[in-house]
Design a protein around this nucleic acid. Structure first.
Lengths: 205, 205
DNA sequence: CCCTTAACGGGTCTGTGGTCCCGTTTGCCT
DNA sequence: AGGCAAACGGGACCACAGACCCGTTAAGGG
């Protein structure tokens, strides 16, 4: 007795299994970016990946399940942050990175789709939260450095500052028809820096 | 010859037609809040509304089409803003209104679903943009009043300030697992006010 | 207060997204 | 290197979302 049968792909993760996963996730990203979350068909993903559709259904089961795994994969490939020596410079670098990502045709559409998927399924939402957690952690140190330099008050919450940089860009992407431009990115960095200097992001007040 | 046949519901918009629309939109909102965008079934909406499913398919056709009409309806019922006499007070009132909306179980889920739908269809996205445009326009005057009072520099873009208040709340709702609390609402209002005072939202620089 | 016809509703049909079965390939352990 | 079973692949199968047909109800104009 016992739970002999684990999820497919966990017992023999090497060789073919890994190749199949890579091909399917790649295809899923493409399909998601091109056709959007609502029109995603797992059979189409299988076709693009050159894989049997049974395989996709067996290993991922649903669209949201596939997106969740895609997010795990995306979280693993984190880009390193750049350091400029000032808080505003660092935040601006971060804002422009986000801006470039969201305005890139493939990436922008992909992020929209992934966010849509996360609103429809708890597991996927969890994966999305992890993804952003990784990104925020990567950039948070620049705020601590600013505290050490005396640019912002001690006790400033680094995570809140970093999130404040991205928030306006995502909000605009999702709720506004206006084009995201570089000026918007710089503005969001400046706003976050100004608020941080003013002590808005101090912990427990 | 000619395009005699307009969209259903446009030629005889009174009486039964209006009742059906109201019932269906109400049911759609309920279903969307309960089951989410991905699991929305038009036949289920019809059942909840006490209406034939043929009617729903004929008038709205697709899930995203229905959501788009729901957004038009939502945009029409705009709540009046409150005035407190200071920019920070007004922004805080706005932030708390958004916060209350997003943390309300039904409304919060509904907004998530509606945003998800908008990422999947251009028409729906258009409707969503209009919805937020209405909301932002409703609140923008408080920024102009702050300019008149000398609280923020002349040339400050009112729309940018109002959007800056909502952005962190929506960003957190969508990308973070953490609970949205009143403190977060107040912080977003303070951040927007601080950035506005610092001249971050000045037009054309 | 009719008459026209826009709009609704039940019933039926069909295309396709998703499941299942079973034979084949290939990791991985000894 | 050999063998066991994990994972894959093709294709048949099934359930149901969504289209269609046609008879019924009730707006709205004269």
């Amino acid at each position: 007795m016992g739970f002999d049968d684990a999820d497919p792909g966990t017992v023999r993760p090497g060789g073919r299994t890994a190749r199949v996963r890579a091909a399917v996730l790649r295809a899923a990203g493409d399909a998601l970016a091109e056709r959007g979350f609502a029109h995603l068909d797992l059979a189409d993903v299988a076709r693009r990946a050159g894989v049997g559709k049974t395989t996709v259904y067996r290993r991922w089961g649903t669209v949201t399940g596939l997106v969740a795994d895609l997010l795990v994969d995306m979280a693993e490939q984190s880009l390193p942050r750049t350091e400029t020596g000032s808080l505003l410079g660092d935040l601006r670098a971060n804002a422009r990175l986000v801006w470039r990502t969201l305005t890139d045709p493939r990436q922008g559409a992909l992020f929209k789709a992934v966010i849509a998927a996360a609103t429809c399924d708890a597991k996927t939402a969890e994966a999305l939260h992890r993804f952003y957690d990784v990104r925020v952690r990567e950039w948070a140190p620049c705020v601590q450095q600013a505290v050490d330099r005396g640019e912002v008050p001690a006790g400033t919450d680094p995570y809140e500052v970093i999130r404040a940089v991205s928030a306006p860009l995502y909000y605009r992407l999702l709720t506004s028809g206006e084009r995201l431009d570089e000026a918007a990115a710089d503005r969001s960095a400046e706003a976050a820096a100004a608020a941080a200097r003013a002590g808005v992001y101090l912990r427990d007040r």
